[in-house]
Amino acid sequence: MPRLLKRAFRLTLWFCAAFATVTAVPVLALRWIDPPSSAVIQSWQQHSGREAQQQWRPLEKISPNLQMAVIAAEDQKFRHHHGFDFASLQKALSETRRRTRGASTITQQTAKNLYLWNDRSYLRKGLEAWFTLLIELFWSKERILEVYLNIAEFGEGIYGAEAAARNFFGTSAQHISRRQAGLMAAVLPSPRRMSAKIPSRYVRSRASTIDRQVRQLGGTVYLKGL
C-alpha cells in the first residue's frame, strides 16, 4: 500500500509540474508577443461564421482617456491588487441584484477572454484563477491593460479599442475623447445589448458617472503609478 501511495504521489507531482509548465510558458511568452486573437474572439467567429473586427494597438497609441475610463468602470483597485479584488467580490456576492462582471478584475477578464470558454463550471473558475495568478506574476500592469484593451468586446464582433473607435466615432484609439471613452467603457458589461455609437439614456448616464469616477481617481495621473 505505501508503494502505491508513493507512486500516486509521484504521478500527481509529475502531472502538476507538466500542467504548470504547459500553461505558464504561453503566458510568459505573451509578455512580449502580442496575441493574434483570443478564445472569446475565436468562439464568436466560429458561432457567427463571420470575421471579427480587431486591430492591435500598443498602449501608447490608446488614449489615456480610454485607459482611465476602463479602469474607473471595471476595476478601480487595478493598480493595487494582485489579480483579485476580494472586497468587491464579497460585496457582489452579498447583493441580490448585481452585474454579471461586478466582481471581476481587469486581470481576470483578460485571463477569461484570452484562454477560456464561456462556462460557469468549477473547472473553468479554477482555470480562471490559475491564469489570473500567472498573468499577474509574469506581466506588468501596463501589459495587462494593453492586452485587455486590445481584446475586450465593445460591440457585436468588434474587439479592441482601435476597431471600436473606428466603428463608433470614426477616429483612432489614440484620439478618443473623454466623452467617447466614457461611452465605450459604459457598454463593457453588456456590449451586445448596449451601444456606444447610439447610446441609450442609461449608457449616457453611466458614462457621466464613469467620467466623475475618473476625476476622483486623479485623472490620467493615476496611470503613472502603474
Rank of each mutant, 00 (worst) to 15 (best):
P2G: 08
L4A: 10
L4H: 13
L4V: 10
K6T: 13
R10A: 09
L13M: 12
C16L: 15
A17H: 07
A17Q: 09
F19W: 15
F19M: 13
V22T: 08
T23H: 05
V25K: 08
A29N: 06
A29S: 09
L30A: 04
W32A: 05
P36I: 01
S37R: 01
Q42N: 15
W44V: 00
Q45C: 03
Q45F: 08
H47M: 10
S48V: 08
A52R: 02
Q53K: 08
Q55F: 07
W56M: 08
L59H: 10
E60W: 14
K61F: 12
I62H: 04
P64H: 08
L66N: 06
V70I: 12
V70H: 06
I71S: 03
Q76W: 13
F78T: 03
H80E: 15
H82F: 15
D85M: 03
D85T: 01
A87E: 15
L89V: 09
Q90D: 12
K91N: 09
L93E: 15
L93M: 14
R97G: 03
R97S: 10
R99N: 13
T100A: 14
A103F: 14
A103V: 09
T105N: 07
I106Q: 03
I106P: 01
T107L: 04
K112N: 03
L114D: 01
L116F: 06
L116D: 02
L116G: 01
W117V: 04
N118S: 13
N118M: 09
R120V: 11
R124L: 06
K125D: 04
E128A: 01
A129F: 06
F131G: 00
L133Q: 11
L133W: 15
L134N: 04
L134Q: 13
W139S: 00
E142L: 03
I144D: 01
L145A: 02
E146T: 00
V147P: 02
Y148L: 05
I151V: 07
F154C: 01
F154V: 00
F154G: 00
E156K: 03
I158N: 00
I158L: 05
G160H: 04
A161F: 02
A163K: 04
A164H: 06
A164R: 01
A165M: 05
R166C: 02
N167R: 13
N167H: 15
F168T: 01
F168D: 04
T171G: 03
S172Y: 11
S172M: 05
A173S: 06
Q174P: 02
S177Y: 09
R178Y: 12
G182W: 11
G182C: 06
L183G: 00
M184Y: 12
M184P: 08
M184E: 12
A185C: 05
A185F: 12
V187Q: 04
V187Y: 07
L188Q: 02
L188I: 04
L188A: 00
P189D: 11
R192W: 14
R193S: 10
R193I: 12
R193L: 11
M194T: 05
M194K: 10
K197T: 09
S200H: 11
R204T: 09
R204C: 10
S205E: 14
S205C: 07
T209D: 12
T209V: 08
Q213D: 12
R215F: 13
L217K: 07
L217A: 02
Y222C: 03
Y222H: 07
K224M: 12
